[in-house]
Amino acid sequence: MSTQDEVATERSRTVDSAMVPRQFVVTASRRDTRDTRTLELRALGDEPLAFGSGQFTMLSAFGAGEVPISISGDPTRPEVLQHTIRDVGGATRALVAASPGTMLGVRGPFGHGWQVADGRGSDIVFVAGGIGLAPLRPAILEVCADRASYGRVSLLYGARTPEDILFGPDLRVWARDHDIDVEETVDTGPHAWRGRVGLVTQLVARVAFDAAHTLALVCGPEVMMRYAAQALIHCGVTADRIRLSMERNMKCGVGLCGHCQLRELFLCVDGPVLSYDRLEPLMTRAEL
């Protein structure tokens, strides 16, 4: 290496690239629903991936492309990286197909998470739609681990059908052992379904919380999040105490590729979790 190389290399070292993945190996793969699986991954070299609830990684199967996926595991157990992935395209299909022993590429963790600890001393309302329960799971586990610090806690969860309900065993444990009011609803159910049918946003009015002292964490399709936020505001929760996890196309995770922009926001860096007072003017305009 010539001296000029060393100079340029030294200079470029001051710029930190986040574009090269770490290698992780799948240690377990669990089928959640017909199109969704949860992978457990361990870092090659075992250096854990410490993360905050609500953060995501850029996950890739070799040669098949890379996608942003929220971490669905327990933030107090960083040695196990969990991702819950729905098969919706080429890259996610390759990830869902990854069997134990498969190596995957991981970059991150990235983004601004739920910061659920801000809700200590107040009531917590989780609102999840579909696969949106996965990014909320770390925050729910965080609350369960420190349950006494929070007031009333409810989880409102809407899925398309009973077969699409994620984390069934978790839902029962959270309700039974952690005093969480878990309310489920589905868009459509078979005759045998004895639970609720309807929109998850309609459940907001059915659970008890002290609106003046509540932190609401919402994740799901954008239209569902908007209606959930409006329902929460209608019940008296202020927009700055309602947090949403936004989804956009992302190619880098660090604000360089531009894809995730929502006007002045880079959702990968400024988000994905943002409060509704910031998002409301940006979400109520079509195609912004």
């Binding site: 340029a8 290399t9 200079r11 470029s12 001051t14 710029v15 930190d16 690239s17 660090v254 360089l256």
Partner: peptide, 13 residues
């Protein structure tokens, strides 16, 4: 916080 390393190397030189 994170940057384009190749760009930085070319610019620096």
């Amino acid at each position: 916080v994170h940057g384009d390393v190749a760009y930085a190397a070319r610019r620096a030189a």
